[in-house]
Simulated assay, not measured.
Amino acid sequence: MNLDAMSSATEKPVVIGVHVNENTMRVPNPHIPWTPSEIADAARACEDAGASLMHFHGRTVDGAADHSAATYGAIIERVRTVSNLLLAPSMANVPGFTVEERLSNLAPNQGDPSRRSDFLVVDMGCAAMDLIDVTTGRYTTDSRVFVNDTGTQIELLSRAQELGMVPYQTSFNVSWTRAIFAHERVRNLLSPLVIAFILGGDEFPAAHPATAAGLSAQLDLLPTDLPVEWIVSAYRGNVLAAAEESIKRGGHVAIGVGDYHYAELGYPSTPDLVAEVAAIARKYGREPASPDQARRILGVDVHAHS
């Protein structure tokens, strides 16, 4: 990176995304929103703390997964009444679902501005999703496989464009990242590419480790001829060390108690974690991006009106 590019990267605002609930239960950290009103309250508090983007899962009042379009629409509508966060909700990623079934929670809402999503989260590879019990070192399951073959990736990228959604392409490891670049070179996708590098804590070995080195292995692959905006998060692990590396190198961060309970920080809320990332950003002379700034940085308007 030349000096001009480095200066530009360090002056660019940091997009802080939040993962507010995933499929996480409220023990031991109680700060997990499930209902539309709870998720909206979390969105407002996270934006106040410096966030500009939110990823969430539909949940029932007792925390079970809810993949209905009605629930996702209700969440988005409620969030948009109190917050300007960009929204990147989960698809209905049920094992065995077709692409259309996986889109069934989002696609029906795309025609309504009050219920539409900004991003389509597309997982760009397959992974063994089994977790490790860190107290024993043994796997807790041995057969959980998340399948996203190349044909599925191509179909989802096409459907994102049809639905006016920015592809939010996730990568657990360098093979997924190489697939993202291969698709871009063939398809000439709209720029910038938005890539979410998802690292893994000790429980989740499918992804690069949740360390600065784990992230650097991904960033070292970035081509010089493609505009990329990357966002780093960590599933079942503390992302803050990698967050600092991302911020230093011009990238962005997603954090939340949906990913990890953060016992070492006293079981904070997601807005508390946003404040931690904002403090790191300011240490390197970068301010948290507003939702409007995030929209421009991530190319949301370009994609939505293509």
Rank of each mutant, 00 (worst) to 15 (best):
T71C: 05
D62L: 10
D41W: 07
S83C: 08
C46H: 08
S52L: 11
L85D: 05
R78I: 02
F56T: 07
L53G: 01
D41F: 04
N84T: 07
S68E: 13
A49E: 06
D66V: 07
H67N: 15
A88M: 13
A45F: 05
R80Y: 09
T81E: 15
G50F: 11
H57R: 08
A88T: 07
H55T: 15
F56Y: 14
C46I: 04
H67D: 14
H55Q: 12
I39C: 03
R80D: 04
T60G: 12
T71F: 01
H55V: 15
D41M: 11
L85G: 01
R80Q: 12
L87N: 02
D66P: 02
F56Q: 09
E47M: 06
A88W: 10
I75F: 00
L53D: 02
G50V: 11
L87M: 10
G50M: 12
H67Q: 08
E38D: 08
V61W: 11
E38C: 03
I75G: 00
A69G: 02
A69I: 13
A45M: 12
E47I: 05
H55K: 04
F56L: 11
A70D: 14
S68I: 06
R59H: 03
L53P: 00
M54T: 02
A51N: 08
D48E: 15
A45Q: 15
A88H: 04
A40Q: 07
R44W: 07
A40I: 11
V79Q: 01
T60E: 14
I76S: 01
R80F: 05
A64G: 06
F56V: 09
N84C: 03
R59E: 09
G73Y: 14
S52W: 05
T81M: 13
V82L: 04
D66R: 07
A65Y: 08
F56M: 12
G63A: 10
T81G: 03
H55I: 14
V79I: 15
R44T: 01
R59M: 05
E38G: 01
H67K: 03
R44K: 14
L85P: 00
I39H: 03
A43S: 13
S83D: 04
A69W: 10
H57A: 08
V79R: 03
L53Q: 04
F56P: 01
A69H: 10
R44F: 10
N84E: 15
S68T: 15
N84I: 02
A88V: 10
A43H: 08
L85Q: 06
Y72S: 02
A70P: 00
A42N: 14
V61R: 09
G63I: 11
V79F: 01
L53T: 01
A42I: 03
Y72H: 12
A49D: 04
T60P: 01
A43I: 08
T60H: 06
A74M: 07
G58F: 12
E47T: 02
D48S: 11
V61M: 10
R78N: 10
V61K: 11
A45N: 09
S52I: 05
T60W: 12
